[in-house]
Design a protein around this nucleic acid. Structure first.
Length: 552
DNA sequence: TCTGGCGGCGCC
DNA sequence: AAAGGGCGCCGCCAGA
């Protein structure tokens, strides 16, 4: 039984063009209207509504997601973290008490979530306690006006469009799923871990546990207990602060090799082993739940399934359908290219025209030393302070003063407790909100002294320094995704994975060439949409493969 | 016994 | 290779 609903035509500025219209089957009505003139749909939250439409077989070309837009606008106004749902936006607009957002629960593995989602969206309008359609119209009109009041309205409009399109893509990707061969997954798990046991860890992990115990001359030590491992090393005369990989690698002891192997395999077993496959792979597809805009920098997050952290070895199970291929496109050196584009440093931007930006910088200023150029860039973008970055940074400061100053200014602003924005206007959370988010009380507001100096101030400086780059890279990638989605309309090709700066398209073999051309063109388009005319290029590494693990 | 914080590691 | 920022997920572990 499909839920009913109401539709209302709006002008671009939010003025209604007529009375609301009641429809008996909302999904069907949206589908019909979409086919007629693909309008920009304005709705409370893509995340709640669109999966329902997709299950009804309805796709839309464009939307304006009120909740995501509210979040962007609140952030821009320095009110990051305030409730962003339609109910909250309406209440703020009307001067009413603002209700907190209803937290969304972590995704259930497929097969459990669908009924619940449908019920939520199909709840009677009375449950909201206000006229939802009226609120949509009012909040949209208000957002339209607030966008016009931002620092760079044109850029912010692009941000809102990209964020909304990203929400559509995220829902579609979760709906379509990533091709996943459970049989190959099982095969590789058996290769790495040995046969699964009815109780307890698989054979290989049990063997390694025995080896580790033997190396320590112990019985009953649990290798997955950091405390026990630290104690065991202490007893053999080795003092270590923790059991991290890079710490263990510096220790000369017979337990180290089996311990490192144990850690690697243990992680695969617990996080991406048989039980993960049982829970998340259905009908040959892995269907995680993506959360567009889930990271403060604008990157996506996932809420269940861990799609953005699939270990490389496990990707051997990602195989295209018979007669189909994956087009895997990966943006190379994306973050330094962002710096080149946004900083206005002409000489730096000239290097950004090269296929290998680091090599071009090296030739220009680092005596051909590519590694040194890379160290300088990474140090500048991430706030590295010590080691061999120092002389490299000095070269960068001297030869590319505007690029250098761009990230330095972001760091200074952060250290002083201020806000920074991405190119399109996504704003970092204020320091105090970050404290509250962490479940702590923000430090005392003592005039201008807050967050100046001290370790926390420097940490925030590194955060804002990186934010201006990472958030801009995220919006470039989102713009690529949105334009690619449009370019693929009418083809059989489907986007099946997006990981920060990489997109994977699953398509019939005879569409692969078209998809490759499209994705390259969209990368160039994304650069133009964000930055206009610039000498910086945004090249992709593109491969056409039958199995994801074969890519590049 | 339950739970939140955190250690550790996967990905970009 | 390393350094840095951003996450999610799992299990341990200490404290309620």
């Amino acid at each position: 039984m499909a839920p009913d609903g109401r539709l209302l035509d709006l002008r671009a500025d939010g003025i209604p063009l007529g009375p609301p219209r009641h429809v008996r089957d909302l999904a069907a009505a949206i589908g019909e209207r979409e086919a007629a003139d693909h309008p920009r749909w304005v709705w409370p939250a893509t995340f709640d509504l669109y999966p329902v439409l997709l299950r009804a077989g309805v796709r839309v070309a464009r939307c304006h997601d009120l909740e995501l837009t509210e979040s962007l606008l609140l952030g821009h106004a320095g009110r990051w973290g305030a409730p962003r749902a339609l109910a909250a936006a309406r209440a703020r607009l009307l001067g009413l008490p603002v209700p907190p957002d209803t937290p969304r629960l972590a995704a259930e593995p497929p097969g459990f979530a669908q009924a619940a989602l449908f019920e939520t969206t199909g709840a009677p309008p009375a449950a909201a306690g206000f006229d939802v359609l009226e609120a949509v119209q009012e909040v949209y009109a208000d957002q339209h006006a607030r966008i016009a009041g931002t620092e760079h309205p044109g850029r912010f409009r692009l941000l809102v469009a990209a964020e909304s399109a990203g929400a559509l893509v995220g829902a579609e990707m979760g709906h379509v799923g990533l091709p996943w061969r459970a049989d190959l997954h099982d095969e590789l798990l058996r290769e790495l871990l040995g046969a699964p046991q009815p109780v307890g860890p698989p054979r290989r992990l049990a063997e390694l546990t025995a080896e580790i115990n033997e190396a320590f001359g112990l019985h009953g030590l649990h290798p997955d207990s950091p405390a026990e491992v630290v104690k065991a090393f202490a007893r053999s005369g080795v003092t270590i602060p923790n059991t991290r990989q890079w710490v263990l690698k510096q220790v000369d002891h017979p337990a180290v090799r089996p311990l490192l192997e144990y850690k690697e395999l243990y992680r695969i077993w617990t996080a991406h082993g048989w039980s993960w496959c049982d829970a998340w792979v259905r009908d040959g597809r892995f269907r995680p739940e993506y959360v567009p805009g889930g990271v403060v920098s604008g990157r996506w997050a996932t809420r269940g399934g861990g799609a953005l952290q699939v270990p490389k070895v496990v990707r051997r199970a990602v195989v295209a359908d018979p007669g189909w291929r994956f087009v895997v496109a990966d943006a190379g050196q994306l973050e330094p290219r962002m710096l080149a584009a946004v900083s206005g440093d002409q000489r730096f931007a000239a290097a950004g025209a090269a296929g290998d930006l680091y090599a071009a910088l090296a030739t220009d200023s680092f005596d051909g030393d590519r590694a040194k150029a890379k160290v300088a860039l990474i140090g500048a973008m991430y706030g590295q302070t010590g080691g061999n970055a120092i002389p490299a940074l000095a070269v960068l400061r001297k030869q590319y003063p505007k690029a250098f100053e761009f990230v330095e200014a972001a760091a200074r602003t952060g250290e002083a407790g201020g806000l920074v924005r991405s190119w399109l206007g996504r704003t970092c959370p204020p320091a105090a909100a970050a404290w509250r988010e962490a479940g702590l009380d923000p430090p005392e507001e003592t005039g201008s002294g807050e967050a100046q100096g001290g370790a926390s101030g420097r940490a925030r400086g590194r955060f804002t320094r990186n934010f201006v780059i990472q958030a801009t890279a995220a919006e470039w990638a989102l713009t690529l995704l949105a334009t690619l989605r449009t370019a693929l309309t009418g083809m059989k090709a489907e986007m099946v994975l997006f990981v920060h700066d990489e997109v994977v398209v699953h398509c019939p073999a005879d569409e692969a060439d078209t998809v490759v051309a499209a994705v390259n063109e969209c990368a160039a388009t994304a650069g133009r949409l964000l930055f206009g005319e610039t000498s910086v290029r945004f090249p992709l590494d593109v491969s056409v493969v039958g199995a994801y693990a074969e890519a590049k």
